[in-house]
Simulated assay, not measured.
Amino acid sequence: MIETTTCETISDGSLHEAGHCVAALRYGIGVRRVSLDECEIEPPGDFLEQGRHHGALAVGYGVIALAGQAAAPKTVMSTSDQLLLANACFLGSFADCPAEMSRAFSVLAERFVLDHREQIEMLAKVLEERRSLSGVEVLEIIGRGQ
């Protein structure tokens, strides 16, 4: 994992969940709500019908699952993070073996967090203050940082 320095007023939990949110939105997957201990994403629904294929969904899910830990390296993957990663590896396994997919997802997640660190920290600061946000609020906050 990549160690980064952040504002000391942001908890690892806020950074972790903000990492999930920003990754979900950047991969076109909606966020229902986020709290200090969970980011609830939208089910894929018509994601595949929107021109995306299993590989794209696998990459999106893999990065979302690992972005929390990449954003806050001292945190651990929750059961839901592990389940999302397992689903990503399953979707991606049509082309590559799950272990290779998992390694690739880790590299992508770390790169994603480096590229989107400012937005992740901005969202984490607001999450730290409010403790819970709706998906609409997350979109508004992320939109301000673009």
Rank of each mutant, 00 (worst) to 15 (best):
A67K: 04
A65K: 04
A95E: 10
N87L: 12
L84Q: 12
S93W: 06
A56N: 06
S78V: 01
G62Y: 00
F94C: 03
A67W: 08
D96V: 03
S80N: 12
M77Y: 12
A58Y: 03
N87T: 05
I64T: 03
G62M: 00
L66S: 14
S80G: 02
C89P: 00
S80M: 11
A67P: 06
A65V: 10
L91K: 04
F94T: 01
A86Q: 10
V59I: 10
G68P: 01
C97R: 11
G60K: 05
A99D: 09
I64A: 05
F90L: 07
A70M: 14
V59N: 07
L84P: 01
L83I: 10
A67F: 07
S78Q: 06
L66A: 12
C89F: 05
A56C: 08
A86T: 09
A88P: 02
Q69L: 15
S80Y: 11
F90K: 09
Q82F: 03
Q82G: 12
A99L: 12
C97K: 08
M77E: 13
G92D: 08
S93L: 04
T79D: 13
A71C: 11
C89N: 03
Y61P: 00
L57Y: 08
P98E: 00
Y61A: 03
Y61L: 14
A65H: 00
I64F: 00
Q82K: 14
V76I: 13
L85D: 09
A67C: 09
A86S: 12
L85G: 11
S78F: 07
D81T: 13
K74P: 04
K74D: 15
F94N: 01
D96A: 05
T75L: 15
Q82W: 08
T79Q: 14
A58E: 01
V63Q: 09
F94Q: 07
A71W: 13
Q82A: 15
V63G: 03
G92A: 06
A70C: 15
A95H: 07
I64W: 00
Q82H: 08
S80D: 07
F90C: 02
G92K: 07
A71R: 14
V76A: 15
Y61V: 01
S93F: 05
S80R: 12
L85I: 10
G92E: 08
P98N: 10
L57T: 00
V59P: 03
A70I: 15
A86Y: 04
P73E: 12
I64G: 07
S78A: 09
T79A: 13
V63C: 06
K74V: 14
L83K: 09
V63T: 03
A86I: 08
N87E: 11
M77R: 15
G62F: 00
G60C: 06
A67D: 03
S78Y: 01
